[in-house]
Design a protein around this nucleic acid. Structure first.
Lengths: 220, 220, 220, 220
DNA sequence: AATGAATGAGGGTTCATTCAT
DNA sequence: CATGAATGAACCCTCATTCAT
């Protein structure tokens, strides 16, 4: 239809409201990752999106709402990602646990830009109730799921002396801590290594269901 | 004039200067915890310190340097804390490991204000090489110590199939993740519980050296 | 298509255009009265008219022209009102003077929304020659008419020591001042009382032609 | 002392808070008179004062407060002016009334810049309760004083059929209307003529206490 | 050493205007 | 004709920094 297969779709001057908002949220993620939250201005976001100054207030009313919607976006994406992973995983608790770990260290979740955004919001969350609530909700929902699976596994495997919530909290915490390493020391840790560290944790807790992953050498 | 030539006054002046700087760094920590890094201004810090506007530029030249010095301060304090803990701990690797865990979940390290500061800087670290370097250095030094102790323990205890750096990285990551929980969901996790989660991890990895801590019920 | 070639449609279009403009001018009056000139935007006017953003530039090219046309509209309406009143009044100067006073304190002239618009433009008139000219013209035309009638009355009644233009200027000024009171202290003055104050003035100047109106109590 | 008699005092870099505020209020009056309220910005005021952008927020917190304080300033000045005039006037009601009229048409009250400011605020007063209240208060206090003097004069002079508040309201309204003429048609009316129009009004109401002033020709 | 008034660059936001639909 | 998404200049305001005191 007058369009070659190669041509990128001509940038439409008028996009649907949803598309524009998504475009701006993605630009925000890039800007926060590149410049930090402190140096993310309406200007940097608009420039990143290739649009004009006023556009953000047109679609989000205020900078604050843009940031909240951005946080909400990656939180939703996170939840959707692991829900979908569970849908595609086998029925056994071990398989399902492994699937969750897999999600945490693969795209689109474990994207360095998005990790930067998470830490940016965590960094402000103590003083911003809105951020804190959104962050806490994601954490709690995920850990609840982890906890339920650990509980099933403990019962199924007859593991003694293990507490499901302790394991779930520990695993979720370890994941977040590894994200931090991926963020600030990307050279010394790959996503695969990070995943294996989590799997090693599961192997030590559930030796009959998880085996120690093949460990490539880690930089000292 | 009116002052003897002896060293005392000069020394006092110097001391006073250092005290002032410390006073300002502490005020910065409180302000970042209370208002977030984004809303921490020269004004909020000066007010928190009970001093006047211009004082910070007088002592730190710029806002940026104040923030860097603040980060350096808590990083130094962190390192000093665990070094002192090691000095006071017994000689066995297990005791020494336990001492490090203890440090991470007690004052002055595990102060909610300071955790807020850590996350504030981590949040900006991707876009600020200076922050990133300071943060990474603390992390690496600590993990190296953890790794060495794990290695000793593995050798001493004849543990098979364990990788010291994997354990060290996992433990350090778990600690940081638990700090996040203490920061954004202080109601659902106490410092004691957090510490026990780490100890449970060590118990699962080194069952002959660590026992599962008495677990109080965790809120679901 | 489906339309004959006759002039009707064209004429209808033109009529529709004028109606639109009138609709927008009326919306402007309401918006200026409600929000003030400073807070009257293209948006508030369009919303008040129940139409879309771009409509005003379509019909008036610019905001400035809309405002000028609005001022012209109420100035024209004012002039038309008193001319019609004179047409309907008796032949004697006194009757005609009374008719003019009547117009000033009745609808559609003495509408609180329109008074607000007058004062809004007077407020900007010093710095806006266009406004000032339109305002001055209305004032001068009206005062000239008043002056002529006073002159006739002075001659007819043999009043000594009276100056027609002094009386006319005073009466017209008093009217404008009373409008201000109606605008900012509507509780303490009714339109009827305001009119009577003017009539009392005429009675004191022309005692043989005007009698003191029945004065209802005024709030102190 | 080291300063010649001609030299303007060197502009002090640091002025007392009160002086700076007064300087800014005066600059605001000039700007409103010159540019109108709509085109009076922080910039125009700062430039008019010969100071920098940020100075206004430093001293008044917001533009709105600057405007309110400006209105309050001219309202206070107005009140102070007529109170002082009464202090200096003779004891008879007629003398005192004349003194009030005199104030209204002389400096510093009847300054064209200040008239412009009054009309600017009157123009916004319908939609701004704060402005309206300040404006109404000035009006009411003044009219109350006028009313009391008229009442004394009516009693003293045995005038029949006159209502003090009607006269006072009329006189005050006439004054405000004449101010409008001075504002928008300064060529066709001098302050002296305006004053005489008011005196003529008083003469027609109180013929035994006021005489018709010598009327210079008025432009038609 | 310490203060705090003053500066001015740059932030978020509003809004008159344009233009593809 | 009419719409409303998009633009960008200009607004008010904040705040790191400077400097006379």
């Amino acid at each position: 239809m007058g369009k070659t297969a190669l041509g990128a779709p001509a940038k439409k001057r008028t996009a649907s409201k949803q598309e524009r908002q998504l475009q701006l949220i993605r630009a925000t993620i890039r800007s926060v990752a590149k410049n930090g939250l402190a140096d993310t201005t309406m200007s940097t976001v608009a420039r990143e999106a290739g649009l004009s100054q006023g556009i953000i207030n047109l679609h989000f009313q205020s900078k604050d709402r843009l940031l909240v919607e951005t946080l909400r976006y990656i939180a939703d994406e996170y939840k959707t990602s692991w829900e979908k992973a569970l849908d595609g995983a086998g029925p056994s608790p071990a398989e399902r646990l492994a699937a969750l770990v897999e999600v945490d260290f693969n795209m689109p979740v474990c994207d360095r830009n998005k990790l930067a955004v998470w830490f940016a919001f965590w960094g402000e969350s103590k003083s911003r109730p809105t951020y804190r609530k959104l962050c806490a909700t994601r954490d709690i929902q995920y850990r609840k799921e982890l906890g339920a699976l650990c509980q099933l596994l403990i019962e199924e495997g007859g593991y003694q002396g293990l507490d499901a919530m302790v394991l779930a909290t520990g695993l979720s915490a370890m994941t977040e801590g590894l994200w931090l390493d991926l963020l600030i020391s990307p050279r010394s840790l790959t996503r695969e290594q990070a995943r294996n560290i989590c799997l090693a944790y599961l192997a030590s807790a559930f030796p009959r269901h998880f085996s120690v992953p093949p460990l490539r050498e880690m930089s000292p």
